[in-house]
Amino acid sequence: MTTTAFLQYCLAGISIGGIYALIAIGYTMVYGILRLINFAHGDIFMMAAYFMIFAMVDFMIPWYISASIVIISTILLGLLIEKLAYSPLRSSPRMSIMISAIGVSFLLQNLATYLFSALPKQYPAIPVLNKTLTFGEVSTSVVTFITPIITIGALIILMAIIKKTKIGMAMRAVSKDFQTAKLMGIEINTVISVTFIIGCFLAALGSMLYFTPRPSVFPLAGSLPGLKCFVAAVFGGIGSIPGAVLGGFLIGLCETFIKAAGYSEFSDVFTFILLIAVLMFRPTGLFGETLAEKV
């Protein structure tokens, strides 16, 4: 492999890894607060892609306005799912809410099939993102180049929110102890909503970056990336945001190099081997804490 090719693959790997990281943060944050694996998260990411098609293709709204519409509608979708499918089960056994999440996932996939048909739809081109950049020998599209920058930027802002703001402190408290958090006067539902807003915002962002260089969207387009990001979150230690980001980058890079080495069919399998290996040898992931049942 030449140096140029190597750099090219690195960039591609970091870029897809950044997108995985954005989505993995959504899994890990919701888990951190609710101890729920939000199986619908990948499908929310898919719906965000359809929202973009809706806005840009069907209504011909300029891309920058469409992008904000996509972000807002994705957040609303996430909040709606939380209110209808998860919040009524707050005091039920944890398995019920997991099953509800799986149900929502199927519901979104079938809803998308029903509304938009199972045929792949073309994702609209965002002109600025599709331009080509050249650095010496390495050439790449703008979207590939800015994805890791956006990821890191989002991560820094997110960590600042969690470490420095009042709501961030409340999130950390709620993730440890619901009842005592309530005794501080924290409203659990507000904290949960904020968590979903952040997760869906990042999923919408990830969706735009993911689908821009790809030809099409279809109702199951969210499930494989969703699963990979879930693995990224588990790998990093579910509940840990830096862990999820690291997991995302790692899976993106490995997958890209496996493809580059000519084992494309194997690249998705790799993710699941990684999952099994993590669960076998280090179930708490890289930065995970020892799991204690919450009281």
């Binding site: 402190m169 950390r172 408290a173 440890k176 102890d177 009842q179 005592t180 005794l183």
Partner: peptide
């Protein structure tokens, strides 16, 4: 002030 202290250990 709840039984068993219940401080937030990570904070």
């Amino acid at each position: 002030t709840p039984e068993g202290r219940r401080v937030f250990p990570d904070l």
